[in-house]
Each structure stands twice: as C-alpha cells, then as structure tokens.
Design a protein around this nucleic acid. Structure first.
Lengths: 250, 250
DNA sequence: CTAAATTTGTTCAAAAATAATCAAAATAAT
DNA sequence: ATTATTTTGATTATTTTTGAACAAATTTAG
C-alpha cells in the first residue's frame, strides 16, 4: 500500500464521514499512526482536507464565519448609544465615509434602511450592509487581515476620488495634550484622508478612550468637527476639548 | 471527539435552539463542563456565538455567509473537481486574479494555505480567505449587491494597476459559434479585464454550460488560454473548442 | 442588602497527540 | 549486486488538550 492508495482511502473516508481520526485511519490503512499523520500533513498542505488535532475533517465543515461582530461587543452599549446619535445626523441622499473601527461598525444597524451611499474600507461593514438599501462602495487595495479592512496607498487614493457629506471616524485615543492617536500608522492615514475629503467629520469615541495616548498621535483634536461620546464622559474634560475647537454631541 | 467536531455540534445546537447551556452541552458532547466552557469561550471570541452565564446564545448576524456558500453548492462536486485542478496550477509566490463567480469561489479552500497574492472583486472570496496565508487585495468600487462583488469603472481600473501570473474566470455560457457569454455586462467587462492583465487565464466552467449562449456574448473562446472542466464533458465538443485555440484541462 | 448557590477563571497534573530524530526497510538507479 | 534515495516505523521530547480542585465572581433567593 503506497501513498497514492492511502490518499484515495483517506480522502474518501473524510468526504463520506465528514471526519476521521488518526487511530481509525491507521487501522483502516493497516499502517502506523505516524505514517497516517504524515499523509494527513501532505493532504492538508495541498488543501484537500482540514487537519484537526487527532485527525482530519472535510474542508467545507471547517469554515468560520466572520469574526468581527463580537469584538465590537466590548463596551457595546456605549458604542450603540454613540452610533445611534451618529446615525441621527445622517439624512437621505448623503454620501458617507465610514472607517474600519469597531465602534463605527456598530452604526450599521441604524443606517441599513437609509437611502444613502456609504464608502468604506471595512469588510465587516460591507458584510453588514449587503442587501440593505444602502448603496455600497468599497475602497480597494491590500487587505489588512487583522483589521479586516483595506489600507495603504491604493485605499487612500480610492477615498480621494470621492467627496462625502460626512465622515465617521473611530479613534484609539484622544487627549488634551496630544490630540488624536492611533495604534497603527494605517489607521491614522485612513482617518486623516477621510476627514480631508468629507465636508464634516464626526469622531465616534467612547469615554474610556479619553486622555489615552496611543502609539501614534496623528492629528489635533479639531481635525474632526464633532465628537460623539457616551454619557459617562467627564464634563470638565469635555469643556477642555471643546475649547480646542471640536463640538461635543451626546 | 475533538474540538472541531464539538464546535459543529455546539453551533448547530445554538443555531437551531436559539441557546444552549453548559450542562446540556456537556451531556450532549459526552465531555466535561470545563471543556464546554473552554469551547464556548473560543467560539465566542471568534464571534460565532454570544456567551451568557451558564451557556450561550445565538448571535443574530445581519449577514449570512452561508447563503453564498449554499448557492455555490449547485453542481458542487463538479466545481470542486474543477477547482482542485485549477489550484494545482498555482504555485508559491503567484499573483492570481479571481473573478466573482460561484465556481471560482470554490477554489478558496484549496488555496488557503498557499503563500500567494489574490486580487479579487468578490466579497465572498475575501471572507473565505480572511485569516489565511493568502495575501489579499480587493478591487474597490461600487458594490453590486446581487453579485456580492465590486464592478464598474473603478473596479476595472483597479485590476489594470496590477499584473497577475494567472487569472481564474467563471463564465455563464460557452459555445462553438458564439464563444464566451455572460448574463450581464458587468461580468463580461470584469472577465475581459482580468484576462487582459494576466499572463495566463483559466476558464473554470462545468460541462453543463457547454453550448449555452447567454444574454451577452463578449469574447472568443481563445480569450482564455485554458479551459478547466469536469469529466462529464463531451469529447468531440472538447476537440472542437481546442481547435479554436484553447487548451482543455480535466 | 446579605447569604447561598451557581457559574466561571485559574492553576496544575495527567493523558493524548504531535514533532523530531534516527534506524530499518523498501524502492530505484547505476 | 551494490549504492543511493525514499518511505516507513520506533523512540523520545514537546506540545496540546483535557479534567479536577479551588478561589473569585456573578446570579438568585430570601
């Protein structure tokens, strides 16, 4: 019994059964477990099966739907509150830029039924607005797997083609001393571009991010026209921010 | 029973039942409660379920990625056969164009572990290849909801920025008399562009589409270099097609 | 609001599976 | 026939998974 024959049998077993474990296959193939493992490694490399701990399974059973929704559930209530307010500033016919943060993502349910155009670089947003009444436009370019969004030169250039009425931006940190900050250059670049090519820009930022400085400060607070936050925000801090030229909505 | 199998069962239970508790699942899966908790934590992290005290609940996603996967399951075996062959022509380091058809979509499991660049206008493909070893690039532009893909002037222009080693194209109809045909202008435009900017282009087309003319014939058969089809294809028809300058692989 | 009950997170040890290494067997090449 | 190459199997070390025990946190009942 050579590899080709074993391969046939393994694939058939996995396909008909949905899965198979190493022990079982070793008996079936009348060979040692180590050989089965080696075979499974090869078949998995070729993408014919999905290797699991202890065996293998059919590829079609190994699919994972998008995993962004739950991350956005951290401080979900505040984010929903913020997004509801944000959505109330959007009116029919608007062209809207949405960036790829987990806060901005939560605006989707509130705008699904609006007749607007959305330009975004966020894959989860596209998924959430598919088959809605929103007209979608995705910024092309290289996809950043972690952020589930396009980024880089091509993506930025995409946004510059369009003119939006409103841009909604997430931000990782905001402080009186250093303004807006991001955890990555990519995010900072995109946010800056969106703000630049939109008539009005709204920062969506829950109060836990106030007075936090992240890795890269990239713009003064007044890069955005409005800051939408939750009710837990400190009043005197808000006044300080407003003194820098941003309008606070809550 | 390993994690992947338990995951299947847990998700199915939660989806059909709306919710499930830890005790119940431990019995169902014939394992300990601590293991169930760990599984639920993982699934919840991935955003597949919503974790509650004592169990888990269904997470109502507005978008159901399973939908497209199901549609693409029509003649699924032929499509898988075709895609497996298609994938075997891709090698490490290739830049690959993938169009938005349901046949081409099925190539995803076979290329997930390859170190290649994929440029596509298909949202389902992007979703299927997220968090894989494939480097992704999405063609920006307006999104066609029905086709779940970008289209139009901007999308086409996006592809023209890049040069691919291989393009994999779906097609709605192929006939000796009229060549390749599509059900919509959008598809035809994209296919043409992909073929033009790739060194080699592969048509993925199951034999049920042979000698079918759709709404818009848009190119001669030899626009593509190769036609990959299933074993059910008529031999004399294949010879006729080959005489028009395309190489048949199966 | 407090106490009891339940659920969860953490730490640790056992068990199972895998990876790595090396030797033996089978196969191919000269 | 002999040498090189590939494939397989055995052994050991490492990693992953699992379950138990117990402390911490959360919910429920009173």
């Amino acid at each position: 019994m050579n590899f080709q024959e074993r391969k046939q049998i393994i694939i058939e077993k996995v396909e008909t059964n949905g899965s198979a474990d190493v022990k079982e296959l070793a008996v079936l193939l009348n060979t040692s477990e180590i050989t089965v493992r080696r075979d499974l490694a090869i078949l998995s490399d070729k993408g014919l099966i999905f290797r699991t701990h202890g065996g293998a399974m059919k590829l079609s059973l190994s699919y994972d739907p998008v995993d962004f929704v739950n991350k956005s559930a951290v401080r979900g209530e505040q984010k929903d509150y913020i997004c509801q307010i944000a959505a109330s500033y959007i009116k029919e016919g608007d062209v809207v830029f949405l960036d790829c943060g987990s806060t901005v993502f939560r605006i989707c349910p509130f705008i699904r039924n609006m007749k607007i155009k959305v330009v975004t670089n966020s894959i989860p947003i596209v998924n959430a607005l598919l088959n809605s009444s929103v007209s979608l436009n995705f910024a092309g370019g290289e996809i950043d797997m972690e952020r589930q969004a396009s980024h880089g030169y091509v993506a930025i250039e995409h946004f510059t083609r369009y003119r939006a009425d409103k841009a909604f931006l997430g931000v990782d940190g905001i402080s009186f001393a250093n303004g807006l900050s991001a955890s990555s250059e990519k995010e900072a670049e995109i946010s800056t571009a969106l703000a630049k090519y939109a008539k009005e820009s709204f920062l969506l930022c829950d109060s836990s991010k106030f007075e936090k400085d992240k890795y890269l400060p990239f713009a003064p607070i007044n890069m955005a026209n409005y800051l939408i936050t939750d009710l837990g925000a400190n009043e005197s801090l808000i006044n300080q921010y407003e003194s820098l030229g941003i309008r606070i909505l809550k």
